[in-house]
């Protein structure tokens, strides 16, 4: 465990807590893409298949349970909570995310570490995580203004992946064995997707203006 990875995990945890806070405090999920949350739930379920078979550490197991549990809670809230579900932007959240699932699965069938059930689903979850934010970014573009909690949510998600890239660079120099090209390349693609959001987020922060994404 190095500081970059720990910081990355904490940013990831904060991003999910910010989202839960927004939904719980405002009883509203406007501006949040349910499709992105569904993709993240699928990412965690397919990535943590080894949750009950390989014990790495208490930290590792607890974080996996928290990520799966909190994302499932957000998906449940946005679909079934009587008050929250009314504020879901159903007509704006129209990204066809099933294509992302299909494309990532096909890619995982060709690009993986080992041709085993667990490795293919792990590679699938890595690819899917890289593109899972797309429905959310499209929704933000369509809804124009970004309320600050949702903006912070995307910001922390981007920071989490950016720190993981620092973690891979660190491990590349510190460890002999480096066999995580799948995560590395996918993580770079994912962070690049955030770049434009970061640019507008930074501009709005610098001008102390409301964050507006160009339509």
């Amino acid at each position: 465990m190095n500081i970059f990875r720990f910081a990355g995990d904490m940013f990831h945890l904060i991003s999910i807590l910010v989202l839960l806070l927004k939904i719980y405090a405002t009883k509203s999920c406007s501006g949040i893409s349910l499709k992105t949350q569904e993709l993240y739930a699928l990412v965690f379920v397919t990535r943590y298949l080894d949750l009950f078979t390989d014990f790495i550490s208490v930290y590792n197991t607890v974080m996996k349970l928290v990520f799966i549990g909190s994302t499932a809670a957000i998906v449940w809230c946005m679909q079934w909570h009587p008050v929250v579900k009314r504020s879901y932007d159903r007509e704006l959240d129209t990204f066809r995310h099933y294509f992302l699932v299909g494309a990532c699965f096909v890619l995982a069938l060709f690009l993986h570490e080992n041709f085993t059930f667990q490795e293919i689903f792990w590679a699938f979850s890595i690819y899917l995580e890289a593109v899972a934010i797309l429905p959310q970014l499209v929704l933000l573009q369509r809804s124009g203004n970004v309320d600050n909690l949702t903006g912070q949510y995307v910001f922390f998600l981007g920071a989490y992946r950016a720190f993981y890239i620092l973690n891979w660079i660190y491990r590349y120099f510190m460890e002999q064995r480096f066999s995580r090209w799948i995560s590395c390349i996918s993580g770079l693609v994912q962070t690049a997707l955030y770049a434009d959001f970061f640019y507008y987020y930074f501009l709005s922060w610098k001008n102390n203006a409301k964050l507006h994404l160009p339509a």
């Binding site: 465990m1 990875r5 995990d9 570490e113 490795e119 792990w122 590679a123 064995r177 066999s179 995560s183």
Partner: peptide, 10 residues
């Protein structure tokens, strides 16, 4: 390497 992806990362 033969044991697949790094298991210790989230």
């Amino acid at each position: 390497d033969n044991d697949g992806h790094e298991k210790d990362e989230l």
